[in-house]
Simulated scan of single mutants.
Amino acid sequence: MQFQNKVIVVTGAGGGVGEQLVLQLLEKGASVAAVDINLEALEKTKNKTHEPERVSIHQTDITDKKGVSTLAKEVKHIHGHIDGLINNAGIIQDFITIFDLNDSTVDRLMNINFYGMLNMTRAFIPYLAEQPEAFIGNVSSMGGFLPVPGQAMYGASKAAVKIATEGLRLELSKTNIQVSLIIPGGIETDIKKNSGLKNSEIKEEDKKTAGIKLTSPYKASEIIIKGIGKSKAKILVGSDCKVMDFLYRFMPIRAGKIISKVMSKNHGGIFSDTDKLVKR
């Protein structure tokens, strides 16, 4: 897949990896439809570009099916054709157990992370099918294949993205649309703040304690674009993701112990003991 003269739709384009995807795709000669629920953030992204005429911004709630359907028609009208879709938008949860997580948070996680991706994919596939070559890139997470204590429902939403994307790739295998599953590890972004979490900052000492080596949004976007360009079925982003992918496939129990140990060091207070569960 070459990006020159292609039109690519990117969700979550108001910052972090999404913003970098927009900027790097433009550098490769593509035009971009930047999508985010935050209009101010979208405008900031556009203002960072050297060729703003090749960027259209679209304030859209991806959980709204009708709004997403209208978005697809709008992008086609503005750009004339659509060659690619990167479903990057997503949120995480506070580090608390399934037992302590409220229903509205669970619904929000599934609606944005999974149904948002599904809405966008369904709405844009007919337009992608019109092109001689096209692609869909769906962002899952390391937490989508490896259970992370305190992030179980976030992981469940991203696991749903993983399985749906892998199934979609098979379903579209005889079409012109390639499908890539994108799995990031730890990325240096404001996702905690943008998810509306109470404690949105990750302290430097916590990163060192956990042995976390975060990938920059620039590097993550570079890896994603390179992987899509090579038509990769699975794109692992970050050394932590590559290591844990290997460990979980061949030593799942050990991998689970490692991630649990890390979470216990930094979020030990989240784990309910049996007495607490019985009392409730």
Score class of each variant (00 low, 15 high):
residue 12 G to Q: 10
residue 91 I to A: 09
residue 89 A to S: 12
residue 23 L to K: 00
residue 56 S to H: 01
residue 73 K to I: 07
residue 90 G to K: 01
residue 1 M to G: 14
residue 125 I to T: 10
residue 117 M to I: 03
residue 90 G to Q: 04
residue 201 E to K: 02
residue 3 F to S: 03
residue 158 K to G: 04
residue 180 S to R: 01
residue 278 V to L: 10
residue 152 A to S: 15
residue 90 G to A: 11
residue 170 L to Q: 12
residue 103 D to E: 14
residue 227 G to C: 07
residue 12 G to T: 13
residue 108 R to W: 10
residue 118 L to N: 08
residue 16 G to K: 02
residue 132 P to T: 08
residue 270 I to N: 04
residue 212 I to C: 02
residue 101 L to H: 06
residue 88 N to R: 00
residue 132 P to V: 05
residue 8 I to A: 07
residue 10 V to Q: 04
residue 203 K to G: 10
residue 237 V to G: 07
residue 163 I to D: 10
residue 121 T to G: 03
residue 164 A to C: 03
residue 148 V to P: 01
residue 99 F to L: 04
residue 134 A to E: 13
residue 178 Q to T: 10
residue 72 A to F: 11
residue 190 D to I: 04
residue 93 Q to P: 01
residue 243 V to I: 13
residue 91 I to Y: 08
residue 205 E to Q: 06
residue 110 M to S: 08
residue 182 I to G: 04
residue 272 S to K: 05
residue 204 E to Y: 08
residue 260 S to H: 08
residue 25 L to I: 08
residue 52 P to N: 10
residue 53 E to L: 01
residue 180 S to E: 12
residue 201 E to R: 00
residue 71 L to T: 06
residue 258 I to L: 14
residue 98 I to A: 14
residue 269 G to S: 13
residue 22 V to K: 00
residue 260 S to M: 06
residue 178 Q to I: 00
residue 277 L to V: 14
residue 47 N to S: 15
residue 195 S to Y: 11
residue 146 L to R: 00
residue 143 G to D: 14
residue 256 G to L: 02
residue 223 I to K: 01
residue 82 I to E: 09
residue 208 K to D: 15
residue 209 T to V: 11
residue 163 I to A: 13
residue 146 L to F: 07
residue 252 P to I: 04
residue 40 E to N: 09
residue 96 I to D: 14
residue 41 A to Y: 03
residue 272 S to Y: 11
residue 111 N to I: 00
residue 236 L to V: 09
residue 7 V to H: 03
residue 105 T to Y: 08
residue 162 K to D: 15
residue 95 F to E: 12
residue 82 I to L: 03
residue 259 I to C: 03
residue 120 M to R: 00
residue 258 I to Y: 10
residue 109 L to H: 07
residue 175 T to D: 13
residue 51 E to A: 08
residue 80 G to I: 11
residue 38 N to S: 11
residue 101 L to M: 15
residue 63 T to G: 09
residue 14 G to K: 02
residue 73 K to T: 11
residue 203 K to A: 14
residue 109 L to C: 06
residue 141 S to E: 05
residue 238 G to K: 01
residue 216 S to T: 15
residue 108 R to A: 14
residue 227 G to P: 01
residue 153 M to H: 06
residue 163 I to P: 01
residue 207 K to V: 13
residue 134 A to M: 05
residue 211 G to D: 07
residue 165 T to Q: 01
residue 196 G to Y: 11
